Simulated scan of single mutants.
Amino acid sequence: MKRVFLLGPLILAMTPALSACAAAQGADAPSLAKRTVEGRFDVAPPAVVVAPPGPLPADLAGRLARWESDAARAQQAFAAERNSTASTVSAAAGASVASERWVVAQQAISRLTAARAPLTGALADIDRLYIERSVDEAIDGLPDIYALRDRLADMASAQDAVLDALNAQLPGR
């Protein structure tokens, strides 16, 4: 209640000042209506024509083919090594950490990881190429580069899942 009494005299004191402001804005104040000059810029910007990417440059086609064959070779080596590694890891599933069976299983997983090295190397090279061409705004062949990068990334992801599953079977991981 005391607040209401304090605000009352304050509002009464401000009333003449507010009415003076309102009176001052009579005929001299500018109008807030839209001016004719303001409508000049209400036009759509001109369309920007962007040329689609062209075909892959000849010097890159050979590199992409090499990376694709490296990835295929790595996939075959990984598949050939996978079954024996899975058997070795299954045999070591109950073994204690640093036991003979555990060490043999770790070595098998290391060989399986090494078998995929050409794939991970090709993926790193194609990532670098994609970034370099994007920075240089050299868009010719980017769809081909990105498509190959996507295939290699899918292969690497599938291999990562296999390695993660094998590592999860061993104690100490």
Rank of each mutant, 00 (worst) to 15 (best):
A114P: 09
A158S: 07
K34E: 15
V103G: 05
A80R: 04
D136F: 00
R3N: 11
A122W: 11
A74Q: 10
I126M: 01
S31Y: 12
A23D: 03
A13F: 15
D136V: 01
A108L: 04
L170W: 04
M155K: 12
R66F: 03
A65L: 10
R133D: 00
N83I: 13
L123K: 10
E68M: 06
L18I: 05
A108W: 01
L123P: 11
A23P: 08
I131W: 07
A74T: 05
P45S: 04
V50P: 00
G172R: 03
A23Y: 13
R111H: 13
R151C: 09
V89E: 06
Y146S: 12
S110L: 11
A79I: 07
W102Y: 14
S99G: 10
D127K: 07
D125T: 10
I139F: 08
A105W: 02
A44W: 15
L170A: 06
A17C: 14
A44D: 13
A77M: 03
L7Q: 01
A72F: 07
A20P: 02
P9S: 00
K2P: 02
L119P: 10
R101S: 13
L10E: 07
L148N: 11
A108V: 12
P118M: 14
R101V: 01
D150T: 15
D42G: 09
T36P: 01
A105T: 02
L18C: 12
T88P: 08
R35P: 09
P52S: 03
V48K: 06
A80S: 07
R35Y: 02
A115W: 06
R82E: 14
S19G: 10
A13Y: 12
T36D: 13
T88A: 09
P57M: 03
T15R: 05
A24N: 11
P52H: 01
A22V: 14
R3P: 00
R128Y: 07
